[in-house]
Amino acid sequence: MIPPAFDYVRPDTLEEAVRVLAEAGEEAKVLAGGQSLLPLLRLRLAFPELVVDVGRIPGLRGVREDGDTLVIGALTTHHDVVHDPLVRRYAGLLAQATETVADPAVRHRGTLGGSLAHADPAGDLPAVALALDAELVAVGPGGRRSVPAGEFFADYLQTALAPDELLVEVRVPEREGWGFRYEKFHRVSQSWAMVGVAALVRRADGRIAEARIGLTNMGPTPLRATAAEQALAGAADPGAVARAAGSAAEGTRPSRDASASPEYRAHLARVLTERAVLAAAGTG
């Protein structure tokens, strides 16, 4: 199908982008890699009057270190995230999960910022951002502000970003010595996650000292499996992990769709949490 007509601007600077967005208000859509927006346009599920192509704004792409924080530009493509040595070293969970997003060609164009700002609950990266305790930095007419991932995802496809704000970078605390695992459950390789579990585990003295668990597609937003995280602290054997994982679906609101019922999703969340945590505990 054919996208509807729209006006198009390609600002050269961040300031210009923010100004254009502020002028256009709700009628504008931000285009980064386009891998979420273009299918929506082609199916005529979105009718923006203006598309603001931020893809060439300098300085928003790439990964650097700021003290003990990893700073990933919002325009960094999935492909570059997967292959980046800093990400692999300090945020292996992100690299692993990103490698499961869509397919190689989509990963060449799609961006980390775009995925987070699109906030699809079936998308893999929002739950990972939660688990990693990422901070999302936005720039708007009022300047820069930093939003913790836990406050960023407001509702289905809704974020804390104002229409005139642009996500510019993702700040991830560096974690060394944490085990990680992204367990993605889907029916075919390129399809969205039916359920995904992003697990980070820190071990000490032969026990799980701390676990952080993000859940994909267990509600209108990505969620933390808080009850399971608490129960996991101190777990020393697979039996304890299994018992703790039993509470992984607590507080979730999984949807019903053609591929799964809420009950099945809840079941998967428990099984996958157990598997992710056991795997993460082994990779630490």
């Binding site: 891998q35 273009l38 299918p39 082609r42 190689p104 060609a105 989509v106 060449h108």
Partner: peptide, 9 residues
């Protein structure tokens, strides 16, 4: 890099 040319303007 490979891209899907139906999903690039």
């Amino acid at each position: 890099m490979s891209v899907k040319s139906c999903t690039v303007l």
